[in-house]
């Protein structure tokens, strides 16, 4: 017991952990982004990962991402499960050759003395079928606890990636719980007032939210309206995608035809050159808006699932619909980027 007490008192608070990891990755040259302000099931779904891993531009970005999984809610009663947990997501494209060593240094930076622990990289391949995305990698085990998912993205939006991105996803609650040696997530010290030493726990900050949103997700959410929201978001997203595909990805013969028409109109109107105009229209096209609609759909699907409103047969069909949207947006986004570079 003496050991764990000592660990506890010197261990980082939840917010210190978050700050340390962010500074660590900032020092590694990462852009620190803010959490995406829509409901997502994982940091991977943020456009900062899902869309930025597409195409050739290198990136190094890190951000925390509250991740909502309605079915995982336990009304705040289970000491190890949360409806909403916090991920720290790091994307490095292309991955540096010493990415694992850097990762291990990040653990040192939050006070984990590696020589006193058992670290293993165990095979764990990641897949998000709805996003047409998968990668290979490991779960990183620290003294038997999975603390990180480490993935080399291979495909996203159904497209082969080049360059590959390395993704590191830390489960922040778990790591803090580990460092502080608490048996319940809710007992984690979130912050400690340096003047008074007063501690605020994770439970004080979040328990109410876990309880009420579990009630909402499992009992109160109106199934009929959820379906309606899903349909509305889906049709809007689909309309945007259709519009994009008609305007910018027409079949070859149609393309020439359209080009002619635009050209004629522009000549008559006496406006600028058609290529420039087309480039502007392409850049302005709100695919990021369409992607947000996908995220809405995905979250609504998860809510319906938690509500027990999706039969197994429906499930496959609805997932296929969302996949079509997500993959459609990813492909359009990649085409948009290519079009702008060309």
């Amino acid at each position: 017991m003496t050991v764990s007490t000592r660990t506890t008192s010197s261990a980082l608070t939840f917010q210190e952990l978050l700050l340390r990891l962010q500074s660590f990755w900032a020092e590694q040259g990462c852009v620190l982004a803010q959490p995406y302000d829509l409901e997502v099931g994982a940091g991977t779904m943020s456009p900062d990962t899902f869309l930025r891993v597409l195409g050739p531009d290198p990136i190094a970005i890190a951000y925390t991402q509250p991740s909502r999984r309605p079915a995982d809610g336990r009304y705040g009663e289970n000491p190890n499960r949360l409806y909403k947990h916090t991920q720290l997501q790091v994307i490095l494209k292309p991955p540096p050759a010493d990415i694992q060593e850097i990762y291990l240094q990040s653990l040192e930076s939050i006070g984990i003395r590696l020589r006193e622990h058992d670290i293993k990289f165990e095979e764990d391949n990641w897949e998000w079928p709805v996003g047409g995305a998968w990668g290979v990698g490991w779960q990183v085990m620290l003294d038997g606890l999975e603390i990180t998912q480490f993935t080399y993205f291979q495909q996203c939006g159904g497209m082969d990636l080049d360059p590959i991105s390395g993704e590191i996803t830390y489960g922040l609650e778990r790591i803090t719980q580990f460092l502080q040696g608490t048996d319940s997530i809710y007992d984690i010290v979130w912050s400690r007032d340096p003047r008074t030493g007063r501690e605020v726990t994770y439970g004080e900050v979040r328990l109410q939210e876990e309880l009420q949103l579990s009630v909402y997700n499992f009992e109160a959410a109106d199934i009929g309206r959820l379906w309606e929201h899903l349909r509305l978001y889906e049709s809007e997203c689909q309309a945007l995608l259709d519009q994009f595909n008609t305007e910018f990805r027409p079949k070859a013969e149609k393309a020439a035809e359209r080009h002619e028409k635009i050209h004629e109109r522009l000549v008559h109107d006496g406006a600028g050159r058609p290529e420039e105009d087309r480039a502007i229209a392409l850049r302005r096209f709100p695919l990021l808006g369409a992607y947000e609609l996908c995220l809405k759909c995905s979250h609504l699907f998860n809510l319906l699932d938690a509500r027990g409103a999706i039969s197994v047969t429906e499930r496959v069909a609805v997932m296929a619909r969302i996949r079509n949207m997500v993959v459609g947006v990813a492909k359009a986004y990649a085409a948009q980027r290519r079009g702008l570079e060309a």
Binding site: V3, S4, R115, E116, H117, D118, I119, D143, F178
Partner: peptide, 14 residues
């Protein structure tokens, strides 16, 4: 690993 003495209890407890 063969942990340092101080680490064995930590690892066991973990």
């Amino acid at each position: 690993t063969h942990p340092e003495e101080s680490g064995i209890d930590t690892i066991r407890h973990g």
